[in-house]
């Protein structure tokens, strides 16, 4: 995708690693009111990687995404995106209530001036991918929380970004819906081969989805631990009952407890 404007690329820092989809080097953020949200954060998300950040409430996780996406300016340090075309899924589905599912999914294509037939095609494909076929003409208020999130996912898929930001997208859903959407997200991840930076409060969700889990400390957020998740993709539902899964989850949980103090 080239028809996409460049969000603030930060101080696009020196070394360009062709394998990195996103790179943070010594990024700190102090809000105008003096709140220090991030302290010297460095990490990268390589192409095809699924990285998840877990951390206490208010530690600065959303801030990381907002800086990376260009929504929030004023951070110090270096950060850069390989491609400005990103997908961004928020905790709230943020659908536009006056648009049908179809029209909501088309939104970004519309904002970038793609023509009608192209928009239709892409939206239909994305709607199919998230399993919302048949609901194209429904308005958001008629959809359940899970379906709204599916629509939000479809919307972010429409421009085929190669890097996705997920800010607790399933946090407001019930457990079963969440697990189901986790599995479908992984299916998309394998199928579409994007890189992802995901945020959650659920350790199980983090371990189930990710290739790597980062643990962030209480504010000001610093990265304090990192775990590789070795399980190969595609990951099946019953991975959740694997003893290795439990062991790794235990370790992450422990690190998170320490991060809280």
């Amino acid at each position: 995708m080239s028809a996409v404007p460049t969000p603030s690329a930060g101080d696009a820092g020196g070394v360009v690693d062709p394998a990195a989809a996103l790179r943070f080097q010594n990024v700190s953020m102090v809000f105008p009111d003096g709140t220090k949200a991030l302290d010297d954060v460095s990490f990268e998300v390589r192409r095809g990687e699924f990285v998840t950040i877990v951390g206490p409430s208010g530690c600065g996780k959303s801030t990381v995404l907002r800086i990376a996406s260009g929504l929030l300016r004023g951070a110090t340090g270096h950060y850069s995106l390989a491609d400005s075309n990103i997908g961004y899924v928020f905790q709230d589905a943020t659908l536009l209530p006056w648009r049908t599912v179809q029209k909501n999914v088309e939104l970004f294509a519309e904002l970038h001036g793609l023509d009608r037939s192209e928009r239709d095609r892409r939206a239909a494909e994305a709607i199919e991918l998230v399993g919302l076929k048949g609901f194209e003409r429904s308005y958001p208020r008629r959809l359940s929380g899970g379906m709204r999130m599916r629509a939000s996912l479809a919307r972010s898929l429409v421009l085929n970004p190669k890097l996705f930001f997920f800010d607790e997208p399933f946090g407001a859903l019930d457990e079963i819906t969440r697990e189901k959407l986790n599995e479908e997200l992984l299916r998309l991840f394998v199928h579409e081969n994007f890189a992802a930076l995901f945020i959650t409060h659920s350790i199980y969700e983090a371990v189930f989805l990710s290739t790597r889990v980062l643990v962030m400390s209480s504010r000001p957020g610093r990265l304090v631990a990192e775990f590789e998740v070795p399980f190969p993709y595609p990951r099946a539902d019953d991975l959740r009952f694997d003893p290795h899964f439990a062991e790794l989850s235990g370790k992450v949980s422990h690190a998170l407890r320490e991060a809280h103090s």
Partner: peptide, 15 residues
């Protein structure tokens, strides 16, 4: 994709 059953059921309940 054959997940239409899932959201369909959700919609019904809501209805």
């Amino acid at each position: 994709m054959t997940t239409t059953m899932g959201p369909g059921a959700e919609l019904e309940i809501r209805d």
